[in-house]
Design a protein around this nucleic acid. Structure first.
Lengths: 199, 199
DNA sequence: TCCCCCATGTAAGCGACACTTACATTGCGA
DNA sequence: TCGCAATGTAAGTGTCGCTTACATGGGGGA
């Protein structure tokens, strides 16, 4: 992996982000060790600190890329749908695809205090805000007559249902409970129904 | 805090759990340092390992106590309610009270891989299972005619809505989005409505 | 009553971690 | 071309979870 190189790496910053993203994917946010990454890239353990203030800053960039991917998936969902309701359903499926397809990244983006809203940099807040705006517009299109508060309420409660199901499944909290007469796939459809169901 | 004592502590195991619970409350699961706890109790850093295999085992006990508290709150909700629907609503409120009243503990119980379903000991699985059973019975009472799969579906989707909202709020992901014409309190009522709303 | 055994404690140390400091190298723009 | 700022390194600090070898003493059996 670490090819021949001189004193300078070339593009260490990008390489660090890529390596961190791989580590997040493999074992979640806690599996990211700056020392490991530095060694795998053939640089000293201090080198990453020339590009990121600390571990948290690096993970923020990884999370930002995750939100960029989510936004791209949202855009694809919009493009491929013929009705507002179809767009809504595809948007929800895009969220599920990210969550179950790349669970480590999803955890970093949502279930981690490594990426907190309090001190988050713009590089993270902007794409995260875009994702929300996109969701909001999709919900609004379902009922053009609804006022702002109603749309927000529907968007957030629907998002909550989807997000909560994902969190519970990934936390293993539904392990023994959704067997018997209820398969995971059936349950997922039920969750989607409740998600899309307007109050 | 650390009073006069001889070579043996007396009840170090219980003291460790109490101190760990305090630390979880104060700063979340990551804020629990065995070294700190040992020092605050006036014992060596190796002493805790006489009572717990590792840090995870200690946190499992703390989480188990959290589930015990949740079960007690569920029981109280049942006792104070006059109709099945009132019982359901009070049960949901008990969940919210735990989540927002003791967020560090809640995170340990649900949003942490320190407490995983995979290798969880019985001391954790039993009270966690009880909480689910209690929720299931409460949902079942709403509609005595419903079959098993339907009750499970309603219980899990409702739980998902509530749990997702909590997770999003505590992760700071709704910080800028639920202001304007929608207060947090109003939103919480909307979430409760959707939670209790049968599909 | 005595005594010994073992549960429970300690001291010291290992390896990994994030992060800092002081110094080395080098490519790029004036 | 040349100096300086960007980017790298070596070495070290303090904290962490956890282990090992040894110390202590309380309680139960003879």
């Amino acid at each position: 992996m670490a090819t021949e190189r001189g004193y300078h790496h070339g593009d260490l910053r990008a390489a660090l982000i890529r390596a961190a993203a791989d580590a997040v994917e493999a074992g979640g946010p806690d599996a990211v060790s700056l020392r490991d990454i530095a060694q795998s890239l053939g640089v000293s353990t201090a080198a990453p600190y020339r590009h990121f203030a600390d571990r948290k800053a690096l993970l923020n960039e990884v999370a930002a890329l995750g939100f960029a991917d989510l936004n791209a998936a949202y855009a694809g969902a919009q493009a491929g749908a013929e009705t507002p309701m179809a767009a809504m359903r595809e948007t929800a499926r895009a969220y599920l695809n990210l969550a179950f397809g790349r669970p480590g990244l999803f955890r970093l983006m949502f279930a981690s205090d490594l990426v907190s809203a309090a001190d988050a940099p713009a590089s993270l807040l902007v794409p995260a805000g875009e994702a929300w705006e996109s969701l909001f517009r999709t919900v609004a299109a379902l009922d053009p007559g609804a006022d702002l508060a109603t749309v927000k309420r529907r968007a957030i409660t629907g998002w909550s249902t989807l997000h909560g199901f994902i969190t519970l499944v990934q936390g293993g909290r539904l392990k023994g409970f959704m067997t018997e007469p209820l398969t995971e796939a059936e349950l997922l459809e039920a969750v989607l129904d409740k998600t899309l169901n307007e109050a």
